[in-house]
């Protein structure tokens, strides 16, 4: 029923650069010859709230929203937001996640605790989980703001698209003066391989 459509769900926090990442991802998928759709919410939810972006590609994409429980890759920019959207992932899907905590208001104001050990919980649930130290690599690339490009680099390992095409998409969408550090960030992200998580077991249904 699904034909060959692939689904990537980006999850993060307003202001983290998920929008640019989903733009680059959509552009590269179009360059690779796919039909592409992407959907996200702007407006009120952007003010530091939880944000998602649905990216779908294949020979013909209908719904702009990923069907519930059918995401092939959960691409997370923040740990809690990634964990929140885990039910969107299909059985046998993969998680690529930034190892970063951003406290939401109820946590920051001391009302509740940030959930413990999300990387461990994700890895226990999904065997194919890649944890990326995005901030560290972004600083290595020369600017902490390139963290979204680092994460794209890590994601690119999971997709059958030539590296050169990613670089072309970045050249098209990243302003000239930030290009060099973003290309470096992409290369550093691409160097991140899936951890040895053989001890983890997938929880299926």
């Amino acid at each position: 029923m699904e034909n060959n459509v692939k689904n990537i769900l980006l999850a993060g926090v307003g202001g983290q650069g998920t929008l640019l990442a989903s733009e680059v991802l959509s552009e590269v998928l179009m360059m690779a010859g796919h039909d592409v759709k992407k959907s996200e919410i702007h407006g009120m939810s952007q003010r530091g709230g939880s944000v998602t972006s649905h990216v779908r590609y294949g020979s013909r994409v209908y719904s702009p929203l990923i069907p519930e429980g059918k995401a092939d890759i959960l691409f997370g920019f923040e740990l809690l937001e990634t964990y929140r959207y885990l039910p969107m992932l299909r059985k046998g899907g993969a998680v690529v996640v930034n190892n970063l905590k951003i406290a939401p208001a109820p946590v920051a104001s001391g009302l509740v605790e940030y959930p413990d050990d999300i990387p461990g919980k994700l890895a226990a649930a999904v065997a194919d989980t890649t944890l990326v130290d995005g901030m560290e690599l972004a600083l290595e690339a020369g600017n902490y703001r390139t963290v979204n490009t680092v994460l794209l680099g890590a994601l690119s390992n999971r997709m059958e698209i030539e590296e050169q095409m990613w670089i072309e998409a970045l050249k098209k969408l990243v302003p000239e003066r930030f290009l060099e550090e973003n290309l470096k960030a992409f290369a550093l992200g691409r160097g991140v391989k899936a951890q040895d998580l053989t001890k983890a077991t997938a929880i299926g249904s």
């Binding site: 530091g48 709230g49 809690l80 992932l89 059985k91 046998g92 899907g93 208001a105 946590v107 299926g204």
Partner: peptide, 13 residues
């Protein structure tokens, strides 16, 4: 395939 049994903190705007 997966569910989140934990009560996760919300992230309102």
């Amino acid at each position: 395939a997966y569910s989140c049994s934990e009560d996760l903190p919300g992230r309102p705007p």
